[in-house]
Nucleic acid binder design. Structure first.
Lengths: 206, 206
DNA sequence: GACTCCATGTAAGTAGTTACATGATTAG
DNA sequence: CTAATCATGTAACTACTTACATGGAGTC
C-alpha cells in the first residue's frame, strides 16, 4: 500500500509521468522507499483504474502525464492524517548479528567493525548532501531535510553501536563455536541441544 | 532468502518443530525478522526438499522435529561469512514524514510528538526486558543482547530526532497546505509554491 | 464436555524483483 | 549515424500476508 501513497504524495506537488516519478524515487524518495520501474508503472495503471489519478496530457514517445484527481488528493490527506506508519519491521543486518556467535570470535568482531566503517561512509555522503544541497523552504525540501537528518543520526548510531558491540564480543567470555560453550545456561528450554556434538565446527568458519 | 537463513540459524542451536520455531520468532527473533506461521511451515517444507534440514523425529499430533543436515550447517556458515546483510531499505514512518508538509502545521508537529512518545514506550519495554531477563553467556543470548541494545539506542534516536524535527517545523515558516495552494501549482516544474518569509533553517543535530 | 494449547497444512491475494521487449527523440 | 536518454509495458518469479481448515492431547 505504501508505494501507492508515495506516488500519490509526489503527484500532489506536480503532475508527472511514470518516468518522472521513477527519477524522483531514484534521487530522493528511494532512500526511504525504493521502487523499481516495473512496479511504478504497474501501480500507476492501477491508480488510474481506481480513479485516484488520471492522464491529463500526452507527450512525445507515448509519454503520459498523470495528475491527481480530487479523490486522489483526498486519499493522500486521509493516509497522512488517519494512519500512522511504523518503523521498519525487518532488519537483515540485525538478523545476521543475532547469529554472529556462530563465527569465530575475531570474525564476528571484524564483521561489526566493517559495519561501523560502512556506516561512516554513508554518514559522510549524507552529510555532504545536506551541506551541498539547496535547501529552500518549500514543504517538500523542509520535510526531505527532516528525513535526511534522520539518516545522518542513524548512521552515527550504527557506528557507535557497532563499536560498542565489537567491544562486548571482544571482552565478553562467550565461547566461540568451537568450544563447548553454552553449558552454563540451558535453564530455560527443555532441550540441551547445543551445537557441540561434532567437533568439526571448530574450524568450519575458515 | 533471509527467513530461510533465520530458520537455519535457529536450528543450529537445537532441533525443533515448526511450532517451536514459530514461538522463537514470536518471542525473540521476530523483533528483527517477523514471520507468520504459514510462511514458516512453507519454508521448512522447502528446506527439507532441498536437503538443508531433515525430519529427525516425529512426535504426537503429527509433530515433526527438524534438524540441520551438514549441508544446512555449511550453508549457515556461508551465509554468515560471505554475505553482509544491510540495513532496512524501507521505512514507512519516514515515507510519511516526507509528506508531512501536506498537513496543517500543528497536525504535522503533533504527528512527530506522537512518534516520540510511542518510541519512548517501546524504549521502556526494551529496557525492562534487558534488565529483567537472565542474560547468561551463551552465544545466542550474548548476540541477542547486542540486538536488543541496538533497539534501545534506536528508540532513543527516534525520540531525539522527533523532538528536533517537531521543533524545526514549529519554528520554520514553511506554509501549511491551507494557506497557499500547492495543489494549484501545476505544470511548472521548479517550484511548487509555498514558501515563506522568514529565514533560518538553524541547523544541525544536537 | 468444554477449553486451551499443540501442531500442521493449503489457498488466494498483495508486494516486490528480475529480466525481457520495444520504440521515439535528441544531442553530438 | 549512433549513442544516450526518454518512455512504457509485460511475464515469471520470490516473499510475505490473511484466512481458512483440521485435528490430537491435556486439563479443569
Amino acid at each position: 500500500m505504501s508505494l501507492r501513497n508515495a506516488l500519490l504524495g509526489l503527484l500532489v506537488f506536480r503532475p508527472g509521468s511514470g518516468y518522472d516519478l521513477l527519477k524522483m524515487f531514484d534521487t530522493s524518495l528511494g532512500y526511504v522507499w525504493p521502487a523499481k520501474q516495473s512496479q511504478i508503472y504497474g501501480e500507476l495503471t492501477k491508480l488510474d483504474a481506481t480513479g485516484l489519478i488520471k492522464v491529463t496530457e500526452e507527450g512525445p514517445r507515448g509519454r503520459k502525464q498523470y495528475s491527481l484527481t480530487p479523490e486522489g488528493h483526498a486519499e493522500t490527506l486521509r493516509w497522512l492524517s488517519e494512519t500512522r506508519e511504523s518503523r521498519p519491521l525487518r532488519n537483515p543486518m540485525l538478523l545476521q548479528t543475532f547469529f554472529l556467535g556462530l563465527l569465530p570470535r575475531e570474525d564476528a568482531v571484524q564483521r561489526l567493525l566493517d559495519h561501523a566503517e560502512a556506516s561512516a561512509k554513508e554518514h559522510d555522503t549524507l552529510v555532504s548532501l545536506r551541506d551541498t544541497e539547496e535547501w529552500d523552504k518549500d514543504m517538500l525540501t523542509v520535510c526531505g531535510r527532516l528525513v535526511l537528518e534522520h539518516g545522518i543520526r542513524q548512521r552515527v548510531l550504527e557506528q557507535e553501536w557497532a563499536h560498542w558491540a565489537a567491544e562486548q564480543l571482544r571482552s565478553g567470555h562467550a565461547e566461540g563455536p568451537g568450544t563447548t560453550g553454552t553449558e552454563t545456561a540451558d535453564a530455560d528450554t527443555t532441550d540441551p541441544g547445543v551445537v557441540a556434538d561434532s567437533t568439526d565446527q571448530a574450524h568450519s568458519g575458515r
